[in-house]
Simulated assay, not measured.
Amino acid sequence: MTTRPLPEAAFRVLLSLIFLVSGATHLLRPEAVAARLDGAPFAHVATALAPSTSLVLLAGVALLAGGLALLVGYRTRAAALGLIAVLVPITLTVQLAPEALGPLFKNVAILGGLVFFAAHGSEGYSADRALRLRRARRLVPALS
């Protein structure tokens, strides 16, 4: 499947912003985010693994790293898969509540964007494309 480079790059950059902001919030205000987790309907599922503040900090690092990779298009498929691995548990533990239908479906929509990049990678103005072109240029003289 081929996509147009500029719209795909815009999609990737805009999608990355939510992860960058969320990751920064997790790291800069972990107590507030942990309190929200502790008050979530299925918090016991997550906090059975580790204390809420530790989970929030770990998620913050993953969201920020994945968001940065998505932003520049570096290892886009892996970044999208990593972000899916963080987004799904957050959605299932924090967003599954009758009063959270808006945030729940926001996460479902974001998941759709991540599935796109996990399946297709990134061609438009991305580090992945630049690295592929660089490798190809190094291989061409070797074949001559």
Rank of each mutant, 00 (worst) to 15 (best):
A46I: 02
L114K: 04
V115A: 12
L14C: 13
A142I: 09
S122G: 09
G102A: 13
V86S: 05
L28E: 03
A100R: 14
T25K: 15
A142T: 09
A118W: 02
P89I: 05
F11S: 09
F105P: 08
H120L: 02
L37V: 09
L14D: 06
F19L: 03
H26W: 08
L104M: 06
S122K: 11
V94M: 14
T2E: 11
A130L: 12
L104W: 12
H44I: 00
L143A: 15
A119Q: 08
T93C: 04
K106D: 04
V61T: 08
A46M: 08
L57I: 05
A35C: 02
A62R: 05
V61L: 13
A10G: 09
P51D: 13
D128R: 08
V56K: 11
F19K: 11
H26C: 07
L58I: 13
F11A: 14
G60E: 00
A65G: 03
L17W: 10
A130E: 11
S144H: 14
A59Y: 05
L139Y: 07
L49C: 04
A9F: 07
V33P: 07
A119L: 13
T2S: 15
L17Y: 08
H44R: 14
A109K: 10
A80W: 00
H44N: 13
L17S: 08
R132D: 06
A59K: 03
R77L: 00
P89M: 00
A40M: 06
A78S: 11
V94F: 05
N107H: 10
T53Q: 15
S54C: 05
I84L: 15
N107R: 04
A97D: 12
E8S: 04
L68S: 10
R75M: 12
F42L: 11
I18G: 15
T93A: 06
M1W: 08
L87V: 04
T53W: 00
S126H: 09
P30N: 05
F116R: 10
A59D: 03
Q95M: 04
V56F: 03
F105Y: 15
A9Y: 06
L143M: 15
L101M: 14
L28N: 10
N107D: 09
E99N: 04
R134A: 15
S144V: 12
Y125T: 10
A69D: 05
V61E: 00
G82V: 02
L101Q: 15
L114I: 02
S122C: 12
A34V: 06
V88S: 01
G112K: 10
A109C: 05
A59G: 02
A10R: 07
L55K: 11
L81Q: 06
A80C: 03
M1P: 13
L63S: 06
D38H: 05
A69F: 10
R36Q: 10
L81M: 12
P41E: 01
H44F: 06
S54M: 11
V115H: 08
D38G: 14
L68W: 12
E99Y: 04
R75E: 13
S16E: 00
V140M: 12
L143S: 14
L92D: 09
A78I: 14
A69M: 14
K106R: 15
P89W: 05
Y74D: 11
Y74G: 15
A127I: 15
E31M: 14
L20A: 04
V61N: 04
A32M: 06
L63I: 01
P141G: 07
